[in-house]
Amino acid sequence: MEREFALRSPISRRRFFGTAGVTTLALASPPAFADATAQTSSLPTVNVRLTVNARQLALDLDPRTTLLDALREHLGLTGTKKGCDQGQCGACTVIVNGQRINSCLTLAVMHAGDEITTIEGLVEDGDLHPMQAAFVRHDGLQCGYCTPGQICSAVALLAEHKAGWPSHVTADVATRPALTDAEIAERMSGNICRCSAYPNIVAAIRDVNEGGRA
């Protein structure tokens, strides 16, 4: 026997369940819900001004919103991926003021005034960034889910190297290290690729570093 309930929801009081349909997805008891009107006024939001991909934006955000969720769920910039939401996979890597960071580990409100570049912002006038083109050419991706983070990481890596930053595998931190495959692999190890396109990712970065075809 089908049971029918008139469901109240904060959105409307429409009845969702007809007795005519074959689907019997009626709740066993009325659903729990909160009194939305009473809560709305007390919800704190923070106005944040960000510069994302050279566009200045103002957002009213729940202060708990990570930069990652602000990009994905508020701005629709879903190129930045959520792989673990705890800073362990690198899929959410974006470039903030020139440096790569895990956007899941930082709150959006901490970035007022910051300049943020996401994977969408690397394309210029419809042309792929040389790193994006190199990833396609070298097949530095398979499922594609870690790829935007890999590419943002790779772009920032070249800047870090150019600035003379050493890495764990740099033999002599007092000298500017050559960007060997071992240096690239070490510096890219914060970005997991479970498909394991690693050698192709290294080849793509090497290619761009050596001024390969754009």
């Binding site: 904060p10 709740l27 008891s29 009325p30 659903p31 729990a32 819900f33 909160a34 809560q39």
Partner: peptide, 15 residues
Amino acid sequence: APRVLLVLTKDNAPP
């Protein structure tokens, strides 16, 4: 809790 729309458990899940 604020803006919660639905809490489902074994007590009210549909058949």
